[in-house]
Design a protein around this nucleic acid. Structure first.
Length: 594
RNA sequence: GGUCCGGUAGCUCAGUUGGAUAGAGCAUCAGCCUUCUAAGCUGAGGGUCAUGCGUUCGAAUCGCAUCCGGAUCACCA
């Protein structure tokens, strides 16, 4: 139980004893005491006067008195300012929390909650390399998977690859025309980039052809449909669907190149998947569910034979589920895939990490499954995140304004190298150690940058300004860890006489650190509940900041006396452990030196 | 037009179920390395919490209205 919860419970007990009033936890406002006042936590008394029939000051005094004498293990003293009951928590409470947090774990073993959750993320198209938007998606998905796992879930990380459709046919047709048999091997290019180049090539040619047609007097809309290369791509798609051998072989070959490229990128990102789904295998699913809906009279057929669901009663529109020609649409596949995921794993929850442009789609998907009475419908959650935009607006792959994921990672690592060289603190590192360090710092900066913001918010990324390594950043937190390791290395050799009883009062900064450490559990819980890694990023930054203040103010190795020295060493260990664990949840590693 | 999301310091963002004088980082300015790593620390300036009305002991937070920005409402995925 967290300290906040303990205080709330004690407060409720006090009120019950003194005023014979039963309060639920939400009815008692407890928060941290503002820095200008004495105390650690504050109970707000105003709303209690209804039943205490006393002025807030009076009831505050009574409750404060009661708490200190009945819970001396928690409360040391109290004071009252207006209607605020400020409570000072006993040092002994903090010290024993500190000791427990160190002995309890090195890997924070948590009890399983017995529930299974699937997190689907990344979900790329196979016609182009990953870009900055994917980075946000992948870091979010991977991090939320870590967070849920730490919260007791059994987590399955899934990736639904969009490997078929008109987009890949575009790359294929361009490669056939202009590729001259190029391969990743022959060009030395990463497979996903090579295929992406032909996607761009397709669009260039397509644009030219449209222009040509328009110049000859064709209407623009007609030209867009009639451009020869587009027709070829569409023919290729038909051939693909018919299972044409040659087409399938080319498709498999080019997708294979892309997968090799993606795998390299995933590896560098430090992410992995437990289950890969491919749309080429799932795109026909869902028709049976549509049948089911028709039988149950939940869906209806229009005259032309297309199938719809009417959601107007839920404040939404009618939604197409099957085309007149019987072919499926996006929603059809997603219905089928939701069922497939459940059949595969019998998951309790299914989280989709998808951009907020698909909020409506996800609402509709869940609603339809609920109407069908599917047992897994309630467990469907959308981790919706805002787009990453450039100062010029949205990224558009056709206009070449995307920030490539591989390029960005290269740049981050190069920046890490630049800073590291300038500072010259690790000149004794081998080349291998150096490149490992650059990787840790560069990726740490990138991940922290993308995860520190509430996922719901859209964010603007300015490629002109490189991502910072100072302030509210990954490297700042990593640096704090490295500093601590430096202290611990020095002290490791020394023998200390065990953990004493700690008679001396905690200094304010020592206490602040423990108070922050104590908040971790709550932060983790909120992060899991809200599906929001930024809560962890903020927590870790706050901890690092407090520690750095402490660090400049008090010496560990040259502490005032042996007791303080041992206490501070414990603090160091606890902070290091906590930083490592919490930014680990963000997929960020810590360096021993930097 | 309907629905949904957002608007907090020059910029990027925090701000728990309504609580005390709204907080960080960046940028700017002024300081701090003979001492455990200065990728750090301390201080200063910077605010009509989009606007108005309401709810109440108390509102950035809740309600209503308005303004601004975005997404979406495809036989695209």
């Amino acid at each position: 139980m967290s300290l906040l919860q303990e205080i709330r419970r004690a407060g409720i007990q006090a009120i019950k004893t003194l005023y014979h009033q039963e309060l639920s936890p939400e009815q008692l406002t407890v928060n941290e005491t503002k820095p200008d006042f004495e105390g650690d936590y504050t109970i707000v008394m105003f709303s209690l006067s209804k039943f205490t029939k006393q002025k807030p000051e009076e009831s505050g005094r009574a409750i404060g008195e009661w708490l200190v004498s009945n819970f001396p293990g928690i409360f040391q003293k109290y004071n009252i300012v207006k209607g605020f009951l400020n409570l000072t928590v006993a040092d002994s409470y903090y010290v024993s929390f500190l000791k427990n947090s160190l002995s309890e774990n090195t890997d924070k073993k948590r009890l399983s909650n017995g529930k299974k959750v699937m997190v689907e993320f990344a979900s790329p198209n196979t016609n182009k390399p990953l870009h900055l938007g994917h980075l946000r998606n992948i870091f979010l998905g991977s991090s939320i998977a870590n967070i849920l796992k730490a919260s007791g879930y059994n987590v399955i990380k899934a990736n639904l690859v969009n490997d078929r459709g008109i987009h890949i046919c575009k790359s294929m047709i361009a490669w056939l025309h202009y590729g001259n048999g190029e391969t990743p091997e022959s060009t030395g290019k990463k497979g996903d980039h090579l295929v992406g180049d032909y996607y761009v090539k397709f669009n260039d040619v397509y644009k030219e052809q449209i222009e040509h047609l328009v110049n000859k007097g064709t209407d623009k809309a007609v030209a867009e449909k009639e451009a020869p290369i587009m027709k070829e791509a569409q023919e290729l798609l038909v051939k693909w669907e018919q299972g044409d051998k040659e087409t399938r072989e080319l498709w498999a070959k080019m997708n294979g190149w892309v997968y090799e490229g993606f795998d390299e990128t995933y590896q560098r990102m430090g992410v992995s998947f437990d289950k890969m789904y491919y749309e080429s295998k799932t795109y026909l699913l869902g028709k049976r569910i549509v049948e089911e809906g028709l039988e149950k009279n939940l869906f209806f057929k229009k005259e032309d034979g297309s199938v719809w669901v009417d959601l107007t009663a839920d404040g939404l529109d009618e939604k197409l589920l099957l085309r007149a020609d019987g072919t499926s649409v996006y929603m059809t596949q997603d219905l089928g895939t939701a069922q497939l995921k459940y059949d595969d794993y019998h998951i309790d929850r299914s989280i989709y990490v998808i951009g907020d442009e698909q909020n409506y789609h996800m609402t509709v998907l869940k609603l339809i499954l609920q109407k069908l009475g599917k047992p897994y419908a309630a467990g469907i959650d959308h981790l919706s995140y805002g787009m990453v935009e450039l100062p010029s607006g949205r990224m558009k792959s056709r206009e070449g304004t995307v920030v490539d994921a591989d390029d960005l990672m290269d740049e981050m690592i190069a920046t890490a190298e630049k800073h590291t060289r300038e500072l010259g603190k690790v000149n004794d590192f081998s080349e291998k150690e150096l490149s490992a360090l650059y990787e840790i710092l560069g990726m740490g900066a990138a991940k922290f940058y993308l995860l520190r913001v509430n996922p719901k918010k859209k964010m603007v990324f300015n490629p002109e300004e490189s991502i910072d390594f100072h302030g509210f950043t990954g490297p700042f937190v990593q640096y704090t860890y490295a500093r601590i390791q430096s202290i611990l290395r020095k002290e490791e050799a020394e023998e200390h006489s065990g953990i004493p009883a700690f008679q001396q009062p905690l200094l304010p900064l020592e206490k602040s650190i423990i108070i922050q450490l104590e908040k971790f559990e709550q932060a983790l819980e909120n992060a899991a509940l809200e599906m929001d890694p930024s809560i962890i990023a903020n927590y870790a930054f706050e901890l690092a900041k407090i520690f750095n203040t402490f660090y400049t103010e008090h010496s560990v190795t040259k502490a005032e006396n042996e007791e303080k020295k041992i206490l501070r060493l414990l603090l160091c260990k606890a902070v290091a452990q906590d930083i490592s664990y919490s930014i680990g949840l963000l997929g960020i590693s810590v360096p021993e030196r930097m």
